[in-house]
Simulated assay, not measured.
Amino acid sequence: MSSWNHSGGPAEILLIEDNPGDVRLTREAFKEGQIENTLHVAKDGVEALDFLFKRGEYADAPCPDIILLDLNLPGKNGDEVLEEIRDDPHLSRIPVIVLTSSEAESDIVKSYELRANAYLTKPVNPVEFIETIQSFKSFWLSIVRLPPCDNQ
């Protein structure tokens, strides 16, 4: 199974996640899913925004086709990152999927108020975590048509 983005190439995915174990499991799930993609990782909200706004070492960073965002991040938290993405006319159309351990109704409501495209709770069980990521991939990278990037 292969993925496509607006340019016909592998999907560019930005994972914003500070937990190395979750990053490893996500990479494993993408590898097992055989969906062509390039996974970029930002370990906190500040690094993610530098990547998205092409600042500093990220001057040549690609515009992601989709963003996986943890809420519990050091520095700028996920809500702050999501708010900045949605406030920028060049980034606002990128689908943002919240992928977090929080099951709090207030976090779910706030994420959707900030215009997250989906909210997924990370399972604690590694096998279930991988299954969740693979379900995400099957839908968002195989079925959904992603918008072209407008990050100039």
Score class of each variant (00 low, 15 high):
residue 53 F to K: 13
residue 69 L to F: 12
residue 50 D to Q: 14
residue 90 H to I: 01
residue 149 C to I: 06
residue 17 E to W: 03
residue 47 E to G: 06
residue 105 E to L: 11
residue 42 A to Q: 12
residue 52 L to M: 09
residue 20 P to I: 04
residue 142 S to L: 11
residue 11 A to N: 01
residue 91 L to I: 09
residue 122 K to Y: 06
residue 122 K to W: 08
residue 98 V to F: 10
residue 36 E to N: 01
residue 127 V to N: 02
residue 51 F to V: 08
residue 51 F to N: 05
residue 100 T to S: 15
residue 53 F to N: 04
residue 88 D to H: 11
residue 118 A to L: 02
residue 78 G to K: 10
residue 116 A to F: 04
residue 88 D to Q: 02
residue 4 W to N: 12
residue 93 R to H: 14
residue 35 I to K: 10
residue 111 S to K: 03
residue 90 H to G: 07
residue 47 E to K: 15
residue 143 I to W: 01
residue 89 P to K: 12
residue 130 I to H: 01
residue 91 L to V: 10
residue 10 P to W: 00
residue 127 V to S: 03
residue 35 I to R: 12
residue 6 H to C: 06
residue 94 I to Q: 10
residue 150 D to T: 13
residue 47 E to F: 08
residue 126 P to I: 07
residue 42 A to F: 13
residue 87 D to E: 13
residue 117 N to G: 05
residue 15 L to G: 03
residue 144 V to E: 14
residue 60 D to N: 14
residue 94 I to W: 10
residue 25 L to C: 08
residue 140 W to L: 00
residue 140 W to T: 00
residue 25 L to Q: 09
residue 70 D to Q: 08
residue 28 E to Q: 13
residue 123 P to N: 04
residue 33 G to R: 05
residue 130 I to C: 01
residue 141 L to E: 05
residue 96 V to G: 12
residue 56 G to H: 14
residue 78 G to E: 09
residue 93 R to T: 14
residue 145 R to Y: 00
residue 53 F to V: 01
residue 132 T to N: 03
residue 120 L to F: 11
residue 66 I to C: 03
residue 24 R to F: 12
residue 78 G to F: 09
residue 34 Q to W: 01
residue 75 G to T: 02
residue 29 A to E: 01
residue 28 E to C: 00
residue 116 A to S: 07
residue 40 H to N: 15
residue 143 I to Q: 11
residue 126 P to L: 09
residue 47 E to M: 14
residue 52 L to A: 09
residue 36 E to S: 08
residue 63 C to Y: 11
residue 60 D to I: 07
residue 33 G to K: 05
residue 46 V to S: 08
residue 123 P to I: 02
residue 69 L to V: 12
residue 22 D to W: 13
residue 82 L to I: 03
residue 122 K to L: 05
residue 76 K to F: 09
residue 86 R to N: 05
residue 57 E to F: 04
residue 77 N to I: 01
residue 17 E to F: 06
residue 33 G to E: 13
residue 78 G to V: 06
residue 15 L to K: 02
residue 6 H to R: 05
residue 102 S to V: 10
residue 92 S to L: 13
residue 104 A to G: 04
residue 87 D to Q: 14
residue 147 P to L: 04
residue 65 D to S: 13
residue 100 T to D: 09
residue 14 L to Q: 07
residue 108 I to F: 11
residue 71 L to G: 15
